[in-house]
Amino acid sequence: MSDQEAKPSTEDLGDKKEGEYIKLKVIGQDSSEIHFKVKMTTHLKKLKESYCQRQGVPMNSLRFLFEGQRIADNHTPKELGMEEEDVIEVYQEQTGGHSTV
């Protein structure tokens, strides 16, 4: 019986991991920090939209990076291997420009 009891508790931990929340720091170019608590399985588009709304800027005017890689709207913290207190960097999107060649 103890084996049966242990097995469901392991499964519960697996389920808990799926719905687990982590805190992420979003740091802007001006070094301002906003902290977000997100589920591991939530699409990061929600975090990006919330950040842009707080900053009063359109979402397409900023780019969000985690460990140097651009974050897509459909990425989740779990897919990117994010952990508690990880940092997302935000930069002004640069458009235009010309070749110097």
Rank of each mutant, 00 (worst) to 15 (best):
M1D: 07
M1K: 07
D3L: 08
Q4F: 14
Q4V: 06
Q4N: 14
E5A: 13
E5R: 12
P8M: 02
S9Y: 10
S9E: 13
D12Q: 08
D12V: 12
L13Q: 10
G14T: 07
K16S: 12
K16P: 12
E18V: 11
Y21F: 14
I22K: 03
I22V: 08
K23A: 09
K23H: 10
L24N: 03
K25T: 09
I27C: 07
G28F: 00
D30S: 02
S31T: 08
S31L: 01
S32M: 08
E33T: 00
E33G: 02
I34S: 05
I34Q: 02
H35W: 13
K37I: 02
K37Y: 00
V38R: 01
V38I: 15
V38F: 06
M40C: 10
T42K: 06
K46W: 10
K46R: 13
K48S: 01
K48P: 01
E49R: 14
S50D: 07
S50L: 15
Y51I: 05
Y51W: 14
C52N: 01
R54I: 06
R54L: 09
Q55V: 15
G56I: 05
G56D: 08
V57M: 08
P58W: 00
M59V: 14
M59H: 15
M59A: 09
M59C: 09
N60V: 06
S61L: 09
L62R: 15
L62M: 05
E67D: 08
E67Y: 06
E67R: 03
G68K: 01
G68E: 02
Q69S: 12
Q69N: 12
A72I: 15
A72P: 07
D73I: 01
N74A: 11
N74F: 13
P77L: 01
E79Q: 07
E79Y: 15
L80D: 04
L80A: 00
G81Q: 12
M82F: 02
M82H: 04
E83C: 09
E85G: 15
E85P: 00
D86A: 11
I88D: 02
I88P: 03
I88H: 04
V90I: 06
Y91M: 06
Y91S: 04
Q92E: 08
Q94W: 10
Q94E: 06
T95Q: 00
T95M: 13
T95P: 04
G96C: 05
T100P: 07
